[in-house]
Amino acid sequence: MSGVSIKNITKTYEKGTVLALDNISLEVAPGELFGLIGPDGAGKTTLFRILTTLLIPDKGKATVAGFDVVTDYEDIRKIVGYMPGKFSLYQDLSIEENLNFFATVFKTTFEENYHLIEDIYVQIEPFKKRLAGELSGGMKQKLALCCALIHEPKVLFLDEPTTGVDPVSRKEFWDMLDRLKARGITIVVSTPYMDEASRCDRIALIQKGKILEVNTLEKIIKKNRQPLFAIKAPNRYKLIKDIRAFENTNSCFAFGEDNHVSFKNGSEGMPQLLNYLNEKGYENLSHKEVEPDIEDTFIKLMLETENHD
């Protein structure tokens, strides 16, 4: 039993005036690679801090591997690995000193759990004498992951591990998570990058302290599928304003070089919009129907909750 269970967790800051988490419930199965996807300020870090026993929730109950986050915090601290969003290792200690230190704090040794971190460690081993503060961003992140793994945790919490990391290192990092998952470690990872959602078994979309949807990526997209069109024209800024002014437009967002548009009346809206735009004198207009991806789905869900409020 190394899953995570969250029931009706609410957390406020500033004496209740700032709502960080609003009645959140989640279940993460043992051995799952679970993604918390949401923009900055959505409440991801607060949730991590509650699950790692650093914060006490105002309301609700949460367990990690069966241990209550409030009453059994000492048990939880022995079995979880936590990698905070901000690099939090000793900058004035070297790679090997940091690793040894965190190993000993968990009453284990580097050698004993070397097999767990070997893949990652070999990449930073050439610099093992270097102080952590002098490492590059990617190397710091690998060291932080090593330190979070050195005591063979049952549950691993990674708060935005790939923020500020280059695309190649990001891909490598997710490959590492796959290998850790194969060892049976439950992993909860947060990210602001929608494209990383596809690497998770299941994801939760989180926005303004609320969970919009929890499921596999495919199911979330399928469930929220709606006709979506990519429209492109040379004068992009004016185009986006005109599309938004159109009466049947549901949403219109810049997406790469295109504008992704959905309509209140579904596919019927597209020919109507084309007429409308032709009247406005647009030339060289290109349009095609597209499959919504996670980002489109997130925007849709986000708009729905906003309108709902």
Binding site: K78, Y82, P84, K86, S88, L89, F102, V105, F106
Partner: peptide
């Protein structure tokens, strides 16, 4: 300030 205390707090220390 550096945040290391938080990392230490999530240990059996």
């Amino acid at each position: 300030e550096v945040g290391t205390i938080e990392q230490l707090n999530v240990t059996p220390l």
